[in-house]
């Protein structure tokens, strides 16, 4: 019992650190799927990460403003259901290129046969 609590504590600490660095990848994937406004990005992340990655609206706005400043994303105004216009964010050409390069360098390697076996994914 004590051992389980200890293992769980270690695991959640590891996961917290791991997830922190993942938000950018999830935002970019959401935007590669098509232009989205902030709530849609959040829903996409929640759905496709199967609830393991959740993010505050404020964190998303902050990240998107930063990416806009760096010309990684851009936005256009579109009609909301009601109320003011929404900002629809999408990846710029630079954004698409760095996402593609990042996936090639850092994600594809996990599809190596040996690693798939080691991770018991087969």
């Amino acid at each position: 019992m004590k051992n389980d609590v200890y293992k769980n504590e270690l695991l959640t600490t590891w996961e917290d650190t791991y997830k922190k660095g993942q938000l950018t990848l999830w935002i970019f994937l959401a935007l590669k799927d098509g232009p989205k406004y902030v709530n849609e990005i959040r829903d996409f992340i929640l759905e496709y990460s199967e609830g393991t990655i959740s993010c505050e609206e404020q964190s998303l706005y902050r990240a998107l403003r930063k990416f806009k400043h760096l010309k990684i994303v851009e936005f256009s105004s579109g009609k909301g259901n009601k109320g003011p216009d929404r900002k629809y964010y999408e990846l710029t050409e630079i954004g698409i290129e760095i996402l593609s390069a990042f996936i090639s360098r850092n994600i594809k390697l996990f599809f190596n046969q040996k690693l798939i076996e080691l991770m018991n994914l087969k």
């Binding site: 922190k20 660095g21 950018t24 930063k66 400043h69 760096l70 010309k71």
Partner: peptide, 12 residues
């Protein structure tokens, strides 16, 4: 920095 943003804060 990149475009005035600290590199350590871009993808944090």
């Amino acid at each position: 920095t990149i475009k005035g943003v600290l590199k350590s804060e871009i993808f944090d």
